[in-house]
Design a protein around this nucleic acid. Structure first.
Lengths: 252, 252
DNA sequence: GAACAATGTAAACACCGTTTACTAGAGTGA
DNA sequence: TCACTCTAGTAAACGGTGTTTACATTGTTC
């Protein structure tokens, strides 16, 4: 991140001091994010926290948006590390357990860090959109890497569950962005099922974190749990849910 | 909204001029919202648009947040009107068709008005949170009225579909906020199924509007369609999905 | 030690939300 | 009609923001 050349040019004392300051800036930025949302992040307040002038921060970041961007990348990394840890916190080859643990870890992280979740997965913010814009086609895209992490486990679950391709492959055409990055190692149906599952879980977590369902429900944990077990089942024995629903509709 | 007393005191010429200015303010605020998100809404820019001084706006709204709040209420009303129109744009008694049309209208409105959707259903914004805070327990709560509108049709669909209560009523305890406002005219299972359906559709729409799935998928319309047909089926013949999934899990 | 890049500052610019004091004018009751 | 009140507007100010500029200082390096 800090070293630009592929052959590390022996980080000097100033380099270390510099990256330490960068980290201090991001820590202060996160404190502001937590205290009152992304709008609260301010160059002058961060500078005050570090005992600096606002103008000094421009030696480290070209703009406020760049600070928000760097913070968002950090948060993506943190969340990804959380999921990796959850994935590896169980027995050897157990894709169902891995996916389950990762899903729960995601929900727990989101509820414990609502402001951070809002920055990454809520309303688009200029600094966060920049991540997706500037890294187009790059495998280093934070959102892609995050999706890829979960998808890898889900794919293993799909394979072990004996996922057969169904006759319905109408979704294939929609997956071109995915194909461009990850190729065609997985059947359309597997990728689609994963994206549908991810969307369902995201919806529940977002509803809960944003409080948009608080007028009706106190706790969305049971809903998350049901959805999750259903999704694991759908991944191991695919087609059952959708095929049943379609048959049911046709016979009405 | 403008008249405070229950017996209208004959709106004078000044009253009309006043509410016209209020509307102008909200129109300008919406233009800013559309142009670049909620953060773009600014007292001074609105005033400039109307040919006024910034201070003049404080004769109409006590703060910028209050303007955002009023705008959000307006948007809720607009969306509600859209859904009502979609509901009534079909044959007489057809709850399944009504719910389907409302769902599609919701998605279309969200995609056509991403900034507005973001204000209402995205990251919590101070001015929008105020709606939910100040109207606590009040039936005039915008979010509640919105939910109630869809729920009414869904409930009719549930009744006509021969919805039976299942043995699983563990979700009842979670619905206390709902019960406090709407009483117990509907079985727990019906309310829960509705909330689950609403959450699923919300997740898909939010993913698409916010662009969080653009790295993998171009168009979430087919996903929305599948989810919707599944949900209609689940409402008319409940228990089938969850019961099947649970049995499937148990026999693994 | 001299040259040089990195890091900091102070000051300014153009914005922002909000408050205050003040004024022109419309509406109203005697 | 006159006097009074209330409304809707203004200008000016206060403290806040992101950002740029010119300048000073410090640390590294030859």
């Amino acid at each position: 991140m800090t070293a630009s050349a592929p052959d590390r040019p022996a980080p000097t004392r100033r380099d270390r001091s510099r990256s330490a300051t960068v980290q201090e800036i991001l820590v202060a930025a996160r404190r502001l994010l937590v205290s009152g949302g992304a709008a609260e992040i301010s160059v002058r307040v961060i500078a005050r926290d570090l005992g600096l002038t606002a103008a000094a921060l421009y030696r480290y970041f070209p703009s406020l948006d760049a600070i928000v961007t760097a913070l968002a990348i950090n948060l993506y990394d943190e969340l990804r590390a959380q999921l990796e840890q959850a994935r590896d916190a169980g027995p050897g080859h157990d894709p169902a357990g891995q996916v389950t643990r990762m899903a729960w870890r995601f929900r727990n992280w989101a509820l414990a860090h609502p402001a951070e979740f809002g920055l990454l997965f809520g309303n688009p913010v200029p600094g966060v959109q920049a991540i997706e814009r500037d890294c187009d086609g790059d495998a280093d895209h934070a959102g892609k890497r995050f999706g890829q992490l979960v998808l890898a486990c889900f794919a293993e679950l799909w394979r072990c569950g004996g996922g057969h391709p169904t006759g319905d492959d109408s979704v294939g055409a929609l997956l071109t962005p995915y194909r461009e990055t990850y190729g065609d190692g997985l059947p359309d149906q597997a990728v689609y099922t994963f994206l549908s599952a991810w969307t369902r879980l995201y919806g529940i977590v977002a509803m809960e974190v944003f409080g948009h369902l608080s007028w009706a429900m106190t706790d969305l944990r049971p809903m998350f749990e049901r959805e999750l077990t259903q999704l694991i089942a759908a991944a191991t024995t695919p087609r059952l849910d959708t095929a049943a629903a379609r048959t049911r509709l046709r016979t009405r």
